[in-house]
């Protein structure tokens, strides 16, 4: 049987706290990452992604402490990243209990970092994260870095293939064209990726309602769908989403 399609809530973390908090249980906002992670585990999330948006070194060490606390209380796969620039921080994140670490801007600056990480921790632990935006003039999907603020010369499909060659075991691809729109995932982007790569793809950006998840899973070979605000603010409850996908004939972990 095919593996279950994964539903992956993403949490932005700053200085060890969940940014803005989550309130999908109609409770007071949960700002503590451990409480938030437990709530998501109980709701049926298949994996959690933590994005560190702390700008300071102090904030980063708080992140490591946070991963330790989360992995002591939550027993589903955890992925963490954001501002990871060297092997030492990758080691710290994995040692703290994360199963995977994702690399974005630092991998563009130094692709060998992917190889070093894959060699030390295995490809399964290294996720290549890509922020991609359609460029009408150049007629290509363009890779952006620094939280989507800086364009690069890289074309998304080519960079995706390179990341895999360097040893990334999974790709987390955010479409900047759909991110924040709530108009659905960038299905065309993932279909194009599916043609050139053979590692799991995590789709990110654009989830608005249940049918968006159905569409992205049905259209291409996407293995997981990541979303943030629709989960955090209770617009989509994960059990409802899983039921819907199940009724659409998809394999999900109910």
């Amino acid at each position: 049987m095919a593996l279950a399609k994964r539903i992956v809530p993403a949490l932005d973390v700053k200085n060890g706290r969940v940014v803005k908090g989550i309130n999908f249980l109609n409770l007071k906002d949960i700002g503590d990452p451990v409480d938030a992670a437990i709530a998501y585990q109980n709701a049926g999330a298949d994996e959690l992604v933590f994005l560190d948006i702390s700008a300071t070194l102090e904030g980063r060490s708080t992140m490591i402490d946070m991963i330790e606390r989360v992995s002591s209380a939550v027993f589903i796969p955890l992925t963490a990243g954001g501002g990871v620039t060297d092997l030492a921080s990758m080691r710290a994140i994995i040692k703290a209990g994360a199963d995977k670490v994702f690399l974005n801007s630092a991998a563009v600056a130094n692709p060998d970092l992917i190889r070093q990480g894959a060699e030390l921790f295995g490809s399964q632990a290294i996720v290549g994260a890509i922020d991609s935006k359609w460029d009408d003039v150049a007629n290509m999907h363009r890779v952006y870095v620094s939280g989507g603020t800086k364009p690069t010369d890289l074309e998304t499909m080519a960079w995706a293939q390179q990341m895999i060659q360097y040893g990334a075991g999974e790709l987390l691809v955010t479409s900047m064209d759909t991110d924040g729109t709530k108009q659905g995932y960038d299905v065309a982007l993932y279909q194009a990726l599916d043609d050139v790569i053979d590692v799991p793809i995590v789709a990110s950006g654009g989830a608005g309602d249940l049918s968006d998840f159905v569409a992205v899973f049905k259209s291409g070979r996407v293995d997981a769908a990541l979303a943030a605000s629709v989960f955090h603010y209770g617009e989509i409850a994960i059990p409802d989403l899983k039921q819907r996908l199940h009724h659409e004939g998809m394999v999900v972990r109910l």
């Binding site: 049987m1 298949d46 799991p200």
Partner: peptide, 11 residues
């Protein structure tokens, strides 16, 4: 249809 490694949830 079965990528190696098997990475994910199976029944």
């Amino acid at each position: 249809g079965f990528k190696v490694p098997q990475m994910g949830w199976n029944q």
